[in-house]
Structure formats: C-alpha cells, structure tokens
C-alpha cells in the first residue's frame, strides 16, 4: 500500500473510531429521550463521572478491565437513583419537560462541583491496558490497537442493546411501555420500574463511553463539556430517540471530522455544526427521527 493510501486509510479508521466513541456517548442520550421523552442535560456528566471512577478503580486495583465493569455500573446505579428519587418527582410536578430540563441541568452542575471536590481540578491520566497498547499492522498500516478496541466495544454494546430491545421479552415490554404506559400498566407491568431501568441503561452506556475515552483523553472537570456538545449534535442529526440514527450520524460525523482535517482543516471545526444546520433545515426531526 502506498504511503498516501495508508494515510487516507488511517483517516478512515480514525473517523470510524471517533464516530463509534461518539455513538457510545450519544446512544444513551438518545435511548433515554426515545424511551422516556427526557432530554437528559446531565448525560455527559455521567460520562465524565465514569472516567473519574475509572481512574479511582485503576489506581486501587491496577485493572482496567475491572474499571470497565465497575465504573459504568456505579454510574448506572446513580442513574437509577436519580430517576427514582428526582426525575419521577419532577415529572409528577406537572411542569412538563421544563422541570426535567432544569433538574438534569442542576444535576450536571452539582456533579461537576462534586467531582472537583472529590478528585480535584488537575488533569488525570489513564493509559490503555498493556494488552491493548501498541500497534497492529493492517496491510502495512501500523494502527493503535486501543482505537480498534473502541470500535469493537461500541459494536458489542450496540449488538447487546439491539438484542435486548428487539429480541427479548424485556425489550418488548420496554417498547410497549414507551408507546402506551397505561395499557402496559393495566397488564400488570410495573412501568415505573421499566423507565427506571431504561434510565439506568442509558447512563450505563455513558459510563462505558467514559471508561473507553479515558485512555485517549485527559480526565479533567471540563470533560463533560468537551464531549457533550458533539454527542448532542449526533442525537440531533440522527433524530431524537433513534438508536440507528445515532449510529449513522456518529459514523458520518466521525468521518467528516477525520477527512475534514485531512482536506479542509481550516473548516473542519465547523463542518459538524454546518451539517447539523443543514439537516435541521430540511428535516427538523433529524435523519431518522420522528419527534420534533
């Protein structure tokens, strides 16, 4: 393979890896919105919290794999508690989505300050585990194994999520509860518990993304802002609530970023937003969404 071709191939895989990381962050956000109608402003904060928990578990045990298991679990538990004791009350307040928005915004602010108090404000570093460090040869192109791992991890999460939602009884109940919660409730299903589960699942996905991103990014108090905006763009472009839309949008925006930097670097930072504006102008529901 010629060096030039290698460069273009590398950019393609970079786009794929970054796109899949974006999908990991955005999928939880779109899942919660799609299933519960809640725009969780604190979603990126759950992502950031997981990265910090990853640092703590890693420092305590030295095991990245254990942190990949425990940190998202911890974040999901917090998500469940937030849904059970806060969001549910906000929904019962009768103020509609405004209450949810304000509440999740408040949670994001509280989490940011709590993180600073707990872990300090310095940038913390996580390195990829030894088994995922180093490079692999792809047709003459030396490519970092860890970035390929991100692609693989995202695919596994996507597969598990799709299986659960579309091939299990639990998934059927979740989707039914979304369409008509009263009817499902009459059938003896505890819909409250279903929504709690969905919120926990969404925050768990943010948690997985946080641990996946930690070896690439500096873990610092601005991490949520750093990734949150891109995740939001993915959800808007893909269509609020559409998991498939989030996947397509994340992959497209990842490639747009990589090849944008390659060919039109001066414009690359705005390409993502320009594309979002374009999508909204012609299809306000996003590429695959049906809610405005």
């Amino acid at each position: 393979m010629s060096p030039e071709l290698q460069m273009y191939l590398a950019q393609g895989i970079h786009g794929l890896a970054y796109g899949m990381l974006l999908f990991l962050v955005a999928s939880g956000l779109t899942l919660i919105f799609g299933m519960m109608g809640i725009l969780n402003i604190a979603h990126a904060s759950f992502f950031m919290l997981s990265a910090y928990l990853c640092v703590t578990v890693l420092n305590a045990t030295g095991s990245y794999w254990l942190s990949l298991f425990l940190a998202p679990l911890g974040v999901a538990l917090l998500g469940v508690l937030v849904e059970r004791f806060m969001l549910r009350r906000a929904q019962a307040s009768g103020l509609g989505h405004i209450a949810e928005l304000l509440l999740t915004l408040g949670i994001a602010l509280v989490m940011a300050e709590a993180i600073k108090l707990t872990w300090g404000t310095e940038g913390l570093q996580v390195m990829a585990p030894r088994s995922l460090a180093g490079l692999v040869n792809i047709g003459g192109l030396e490519y970092p194994i860890y970035r390929l791992f991100i692609i693989g991890l995202s695919l596994v999460v996507l597969a598990v999520l799709s299986l659960v939602l579309y091939r299990t009884r639990l998934g059927t109940i979740v989707r039914a509860a979304v369409s008509d919660p009263d009817m499902v409730s009459v059938l003896g299903v505890n819909t409250r518990r279903v929504f709690m589960l969905v919120f926990g699942l969404g925050t768990w996905m943010a948690g997985v993304a946080g641990v996946a991103a930690a070896p690439i990014l500096t873990v610092f108090p601005g991490l949520a802002d750093q990734m949150g905006m891109d995740a939001f763009v993915v959800v808007v472009v893909g269509g609020f609530g559409s998991l498939f839309g989030a996947l397509v949008a994340a992959l497209f925006l990842g490639e747009l970023n990589a090849y944008g930097i390659q060919f039109i670097p001066k414009l690359s930072p705005v390409l993502m937003f320009a594309f979002m504006a374009l999508v909204l102008a012609f299809k306000p529901t996003g590429l695959f969404g049906d809610r405005e």
Partner: peptide, 20 residues
C-alpha cells in the same frame, strides 16, 4: 501547519498528517 479547536478531542487525524 494546522490549527485545531481549543479542547480538541481527537488528535489522530492531525497526527496522521504529521507522520505523512
């Protein structure tokens, strides 16, 4: 010569250009 946004996330596309 490239200029990236503040708080950039993915440096890989830039670094691929550096390498080339």
């Amino acid at each position: 010569e490239d200029y990236h946004p503040l708080f950039n996330k993915d440096f890989a596309p830039y670094l691929t250009k550096v390498k080339a």
